[in-house]
Simulated scan of single mutants.
Amino acid sequence: MSKSATVKGNTFIDSAAFAFDPSVFVQNNLFINMIDPLVLIDAFPANGQAPTGIPQRNSFLLKNDSPNGNRLVIESHGTYNASTGHSLDFSNNFWGVTDNMTIQSRMLDSTDTANPRLHNVILYAPPPQSPDPATPADPQSAAPNV
């Protein structure tokens, strides 16, 4: 995604991954059975300010028939300089489940690996109990989220 783009109010079913930097607003989207995770890439603000475009109020749902075998939703790639790691606030996204261990398993960040490209930390707690009202409704609501 290009800098300062907005991706809002969409429904993605069995979608491939897309990469975006922290200036891109990814808001109120519904992602069902993502085949690959979203990738938050480099280009963090150099002045130490918090990123402005972290995903907000999205729903990330995985069903039993998900083609995403590893069930990853987001990877946080940063710069190669581990001293510039960031804590990224994803706490207002709905995961379809509320179990913290399940949600944590859907993210790849520095808590999972010593890879220098993944030195950021994704914060997700407390997870919302339901989707944001402005996010598209789940057309597969009869199928449980896992």
Rank of each mutant, 00 (worst) to 15 (best):
P126F: 12
A46K: 15
L61P: 00
T98I: 09
S141K: 13
A114F: 08
A43I: 04
S87K: 12
F44C: 01
A142R: 08
L72T: 04
D65V: 13
L88D: 02
F44K: 00
Q56D: 13
M107L: 12
S130D: 11
L108W: 04
T11P: 03
I103H: 01
K8S: 05
Q129S: 13
P133G: 08
Q129R: 07
L38P: 01
L40E: 02
N64T: 09
T113D: 13
D109Y: 00
F90D: 00
I103N: 01
M107T: 00
F94H: 06
H86Q: 12
D112T: 12
N29G: 09
D65R: 15
N81S: 13
R106G: 00
D14M: 11
A125N: 15
M107V: 00
T79L: 07
L108N: 03
P55L: 02
N33D: 15
P51H: 06
P133V: 04
F94E: 02
L30V: 07
A137G: 13
P131A: 15
V7N: 03
N58W: 07
V73P: 00
A46M: 11
A19M: 12
L30P: 01
R57Q: 10
N92H: 10
T113G: 06
S4A: 05
A50T: 08
Q56E: 10
L123P: 03
A82R: 14
D36P: 01
S87R: 13
A43N: 12
P127M: 09
I32P: 00
N70D: 14
G96M: 09
N10K: 11
Y124V: 06
A19V: 08
L61C: 09
A82D: 11
T6Q: 11
Q129A: 07
Q140K: 13
F25Q: 06
M1Y: 04
F31K: 08
P67E: 14
D21V: 04
S59I: 04
I122K: 03
S83G: 14
D21E: 14
P22M: 10
N64W: 03
V39N: 13
L38F: 06
P139M: 09
Q49N: 15
P45L: 05
F25Y: 03
D21S: 14
D14H: 12
T111D: 14
F31S: 06
P55A: 08
A19H: 13
N29P: 04
A43K: 10
A137M: 07
Q56W: 05
M101T: 06
A114D: 13
P45M: 09
V97W: 08
T113Q: 08
S15F: 08
H77S: 11
D36L: 10
S87T: 07
F94M: 02
